[in-house]
Write a protein that binds this DNA or RNA. Structure first.
Lengths: 344, 344
DNA sequence: CTGAAAGCGCTTACAG
DNA sequence: CTGAAAGCGCTTACAG
């Protein structure tokens, strides 16, 4: 490998025949400098293609303008929309944003937090449901605590409360309950649920909300009606397929995320079943693509972009109180053509 | 804001009653240290929740394990799959990956490169078509050149060659030509193209390939048959809508990306036209979601994940030669149900 | 306004 | 094996 050789402030100062201090002041605009010196410095910097060493700057006390955002998978459309909101607010505040995917690997998540902490990033955002996992939470808290005490800002979206940091929380229970009520209203009485891992708080909350609304109407939802499958499009496909294979009795299937519902719809198509003719399907989140499906998907719409905006704003705005702030965000049931009335 | 106060190596060393040098050696495992000292250091570090300052480490010469990846929009499914490939290879090599979205803003792109350069990231990857824009290219080259000379690694995907860096290039012309031939074979003779900005090299190449294959068969493609619209799902929707409104004569529409084709399909559905009954639709890229559309989309499949893997590998593998390396990647036509034969 | 100097928190030869 | 010291490249009081 070629020698790593960099142009330094020293080099620029020397070329401009000024002190490093003066060169620094010119390049950062932190103080008035005589015109001719300023020009010489700018000239030299341009000529030498000088790029300041961010590490040295940071070490010397300059502030870092790059916030870190950690999610499970940037390619998940749910996250993608949230990220857009985060970046909008960050951009408005002159901040750059760098994203990382953990693929739900706890170690990797801690590694990213640790790296961001080591880099003294001004803020860290954690997006997406956490696991009900004490060990994981503890090692995460072990990173986050000192980071916060050191002046770092943290905000999370959809994360279990026990982290005790500023949070944006979708009303998963209420949203799922509202959806259940809408489906009951359409005449459905036999349901199945495509669930992701139950240890995910988001999954648990959505199932609980859905189930309690059904219970309120005297409609049971047994454990057999709940298929636990991957929290992905392929998971939804597999879950729906097995549901069909074992002889589904449900008139309506609730997939706990739109992404899973997409897989479910394709599984139904592949098995030759029609939606909503043979069975109705509903999801949760309202990611943009569901409008392009055939039929368009009934779902609980979360203001995803706002979720991201609010999280970034929480991280930006000083928390004057002594306890963590929580912003709760409501979902709204959107009925589209993937669900139909039951002919009685 | 709370005082930013951090635990330093000094603090750990003091607490363990050793020198900073020894503490450093223990924490990095760079040299043998007597067992009792080692334990004292590890104890102290744990107790104080010590996190090394990455800036100081970097400045002192340690290597940085985080590569930067810059794309137009992480939420674009095309990029998402490529990113997965990048991350797989990076993970195998013990590297962390941070992603950034530019939203096609040249200034922002340069800002990210500059930041990564300032941070002395070991490698920078640029993903996605560039504009045919000299000014942009120049300012980018002004950052990349010194970065490379300083020992940084750069690799790009789908980027115009003039940057003169290691590249992974999909065979856009050949792929589009093969698609055109397949469609001709199905009996189509009247085509329309939904194109993104012509200044994007990817768009220009795909149109050129498509058109030249048609020309080879004596089928003209006039400028009026090409609708220039946004390089997004909404662009495809708008482009298709206007095509319909002005009285489309084509039997087959080629959208230069799958993402645009998705919008086109929905526009057709909204106008009450059936695919492929009334009109056939084809895309390019083969992003995963197109299998879930109804009907599934005919397209040119690019091995997207491999594109990312190869780019990361280029950045990792020393370039012994004096010129930049180019990896060309072929597309493969995949006929699905969104295209049909023309009954003659 | 400008410069010399100290200091940010590490790592790594260099001595012992 | 261990420690004192120099140095990485900046910024910012502190003097002038």
């Amino acid at each position: 490998m070629a020698e790593r050789t960099h142009v330094t402030l020293q080099d620029v100062a020397r070329a401009a025949a000024v002190s490093p201090a003066t060169a620094s002041r010119v390049l950062n605009g932190t103080a008035k400098v005589r015109d001719d010196l300023r020009e010489r410095v700018q000239d030299a910097a341009g000529r030498l293609a000088y790029a300041p060493n961010a590490h040295a700057q940071a070490l010397a006390g300059a502030s870092r303008p790059t916030v870190g955002v950690i999610c499970h998978d940037v390619s998940d459309p749910y996250f993608a929309v949230i990220a857009r909101g985060i970046m909008r607010v960050a951009g408005d505040n002159g901040l750059l944003v760098m994203l990382a995917s953990t693929f739900r690997d706890a170690d990797r998540e801690v590694a990213y937090v640790s790296m961001l902490r080591a880099q003294r990033a001004p803020a860290i955002l954690l997006i997406g449901s956490g696991f009900e996992d004490k060990t994981w939470e503890r090692s995460l808290a072990a990173e986050l605590g000192p980071y916060l005490r050191g002046g770092g800002r943290v905000a999370v979206v959809s994360r279990h409360r026990s982290l005790r940091v500023d949070s944006v929380l979708p009303e998963n229970r209420a949203g799922a309950a509202a959806l259940a009520n809408a489906l009951l209203e359409m005449g459905h009485r036999r349901f199945a649920v495509l669930a992701g891992p139950r240890a995910l708080t988001t999954v648990a909350d959505r199932i609980a909300g859905f189930r309690s609304a059904l219970a309120g109407a005297g409609v049971p939802l047994s454990e057999e009606d709940i298929v636990e499958c991957g929290f992905t499009r392929d998971g939804g496909y597999a879950g729906m397929s097995s549901l069909i294979d074992r002889g589904m009795r449900a008139t309506c299937v609730f997939a706990v995320t739109d992404v899973m519902a997409i897989g479910a719809l394709t599984a139904l198509r592949d098995k030759g079943l029609s939606v909503p003719g043979d069975v109705s399907v509903a999801g949760f989140d309202d990611i943009p693509i569901v409008r392009d499906l055939t039929p368009p998907l009934t779902t609980v719409a979360l203001p995803l972009e706002q979720l991201g905006e609010q999280a970034m704003e929480l991280a930006l705005r000083e928390n004057s109180g002594r306890r963590s702030r929580i912003v709760r965000v409501e979902g709204r049931v959107v009925i589209r053509e993937s669900t139909g009335r039951v002919r009685s």
